[in-house]
Amino acid sequence: MDRDALEMRPDAAADWPDRIFDILKAHGITHVALVPDAGHARLIRRCLADPAMTVVTLTTEEEGVAMLVGSWLGGAKGVLLMQSSGVGNCINMLSLPVLHRAPLPMIVTMRGDFGEFNPAQIPMGNAVQPTLEAMGTLVRRADVPQDVPAVVDAVIRLAFNTYRPTAALLGQRLIGAKTFGKD
């Protein structure tokens, strides 16, 4: 069993992470909070390489929810990157952007979703959309690379134009390809 079957990341040729980065820049997003996921590795590298981006690696995803409410209070636009299991860590903290009408776009790479190998990913993966929606979050999904830019763009617009938490779920079909250590 190679590592990439356990922690999957996009095919080296897949450029949708770069398209996401372009969209973050186009929307003036300067603050990026994250707990790493293999599916986000390329996007995280792009953000870290950009001196105009403030990147904060969290100890748990719920910190990112509270942190980005603070960013908004200070006039900065941010995004939260995480994998599907991290959504479970965020549930109660989502009270803050709902109560305070704070824009909070999240980009979630899905596990436990499509051809999953790891049984521990299934319970939360299966619960991501209903739990987010139960906490007042608008959810949109992309399952093929061509849909990623439009979905991420829509979710960022919904957050900042209508003042609420929103989430783009990037289906596991997008990140399921084995890479044999290369990305």
Partner: peptide
């Protein structure tokens, strides 16, 4: 003042987001 009514466990890191967004304050 930004008094919280919930989000228990989030106050310090909310302050971090604010501090990073407003480095002059």
């Amino acid at each position: 003042n930004f008094p919280l009514w919930g989000g228990m466990g989030g106050a310090a890191v909310l302050g971090l987001g604010l501090a990073l967004a407003q480095p002059q304050r």
